[in-house]
Each structure stands twice: as structure tokens, then as C-alpha cells.
Amino acid sequence: MGKALFIIDVQNDFTEGGALGVEGGAAVAAGISGYLAAHSGEYAAIFASRDWHDADNDNGGHFATDAAPDFVHTWPRHCVAGTTGADYHPALDTSAVTFHIRKGQGVPAYSIFEGRTEAGSSVHNLLDEHGIDQIDVVGIATDYCVRASALDALGHGQRVRVITDLVAGVAPESSETALAELAHAGAELIVSR
């Protein structure tokens, strides 16, 4: 069986200066690139997800349009398909990425498993096709999309490791809580080497 890497939502809108920028996002982008330079050959497949929201609607209530966002279920407009905000952060080298996953088109989506490739393939099917039984997870944000993606991977029977120095979260407290939840659910918390 094989191992895959999930790179979650390392996009301009989720890094410093973006619509929902998190502190440390740019450093995570650069750190992942360094990690890939040293370790990409260890993975049978590398998946990179991006929020890819519709521009002409509220994406199933995900974008706050009539009231202030609550930053739990509703958010400011972010990662609109085809915009600079939806692009990968420039410090992230995507040359080793096998599959680019788009999620959140017209609906709220946090987990990479809710997305598809441009050709329409699901993450679950691609993992099966490539005989993947272990997934390492990196990216943004620890307390939202990294958490959801890792929990879904565990739910799909994968062995999961979260590389804790290659993630960045919205807030320290909620990020610590998310990592504790993931460890309790069976994920291994490691640091890059």
C-alpha cells in the first residue's frame, strides 16, 4: 500500500493579507515547499486542495451577504474561483502535486474529501485507485479545513499523520483543540524532518 500527502488550502486568501489570512500562513507555504523538495519521492500521490467558491452566489450560505459573518458558519467572500485570492500562495511549489482538488463550488466545504479534480474524480476514488492507506496532512487552517480533512481521512480508514510544524490555524486555542481532537481520533502528530 502507499502513502499520500494532503496539502490543504495554501491559498492567498488564507495567508497574511488575504481575506481570511492566518498568521504563519506564508511560512507554512514556504515550509511545505522545502519539505516537498526533500520528501516528495516518499509519496505515491500528492493532493493539493483549494477553496474554489462561486462568484455569483453565497455558496450555500457560506458567504455572509445579509449580516456580519459569524466566523463559524458564515465568512467574508474569499477564494472566489479564478481570482488571485483563490490562487496558491506564491511560496508554495506545486510542481510535485499529482492532483489539484477544488472544493466549495456553490456549497460550504471544509474537507478535501468534499472536492473533486477538474476532471471530476473524487479524492476517495483516487486514494483507492492508488492503493493509499496512509496520509500525511499539512496546510491551512489547522482548526478548520486541516481538521476536517484529517478527520475524514480517519473516517475512511486511513492512517493519518498531521505534520504540526507545517500547519497554521485561525487561533492558537482552537488549533490546539483541533490537534488534540485529531490525536484522540487516532491521528499521529509529528514534526517534519
Rank of each mutant, 00 (worst) to 15 (best):
residue 5 L to R: 10
residue 6 F to M: 02
residue 6 F to S: 01
residue 13 D to L: 07
residue 18 G to C: 03
residue 22 V to P: 02
residue 22 V to A: 00
residue 27 A to N: 01
residue 28 V to W: 02
residue 28 V to G: 00
residue 30 A to M: 03
residue 31 G to R: 04
residue 32 I to Y: 13
residue 36 L to A: 12
residue 37 A to H: 14
residue 39 H to D: 11
residue 40 S to K: 15
residue 40 S to A: 15
residue 40 S to E: 15
residue 40 S to H: 15
residue 41 G to F: 10
residue 42 E to K: 13
residue 43 Y to E: 11
residue 43 Y to Q: 12
residue 44 A to E: 15
residue 45 A to E: 09
residue 46 I to P: 09
residue 49 S to T: 10
residue 49 S to Q: 03
residue 50 R to L: 04
residue 50 R to H: 03
residue 58 D to W: 07
residue 59 N to V: 06
residue 59 N to S: 10
residue 61 G to H: 13
residue 61 G to P: 11
residue 62 H to C: 14
residue 64 A to M: 03
residue 67 A to D: 12
residue 68 A to V: 06
residue 77 R to D: 14
residue 80 V to P: 08
residue 82 G to F: 13
residue 86 A to L: 07
residue 88 Y to E: 08
residue 89 H to V: 02
residue 91 A to L: 12
residue 92 L to V: 00
residue 92 L to F: 02
residue 96 A to F: 09
residue 97 V to A: 10
residue 98 T to Y: 09
residue 100 H to L: 11
residue 102 R to I: 12
residue 104 G to D: 11
residue 110 Y to L: 07
residue 111 S to P: 08
residue 112 I to W: 09
residue 112 I to F: 08
residue 114 E to P: 10
residue 115 G to E: 07
residue 116 R to V: 15
residue 118 E to Y: 10
residue 118 E to W: 07
residue 119 A to N: 04
residue 120 G to N: 02
residue 121 S to G: 06
residue 122 S to W: 10
residue 122 S to P: 02
residue 123 V to D: 07
residue 125 N to K: 14
residue 125 N to Y: 06
residue 127 L to H: 01
residue 128 D to Q: 15
residue 132 I to V: 05
residue 132 I to P: 03
residue 135 I to K: 03
residue 136 D to M: 11
residue 138 V to D: 03
residue 140 I to P: 04
residue 141 A to W: 08
residue 143 D to P: 05
residue 143 D to T: 03
residue 145 C to P: 02
residue 150 A to C: 07
residue 151 L to R: 09
residue 151 L to I: 04
residue 153 A to D: 04
residue 159 R to I: 10
residue 161 R to V: 12
residue 165 D to G: 06
residue 167 V to K: 07
residue 168 A to Y: 03
residue 170 V to N: 04
residue 174 S to E: 07
residue 174 S to A: 06
residue 175 S to I: 00
residue 177 T to Y: 12
residue 178 A to K: 02
residue 181 E to R: 08
residue 185 A to Q: 05
residue 185 A to L: 07
residue 189 L to W: 05
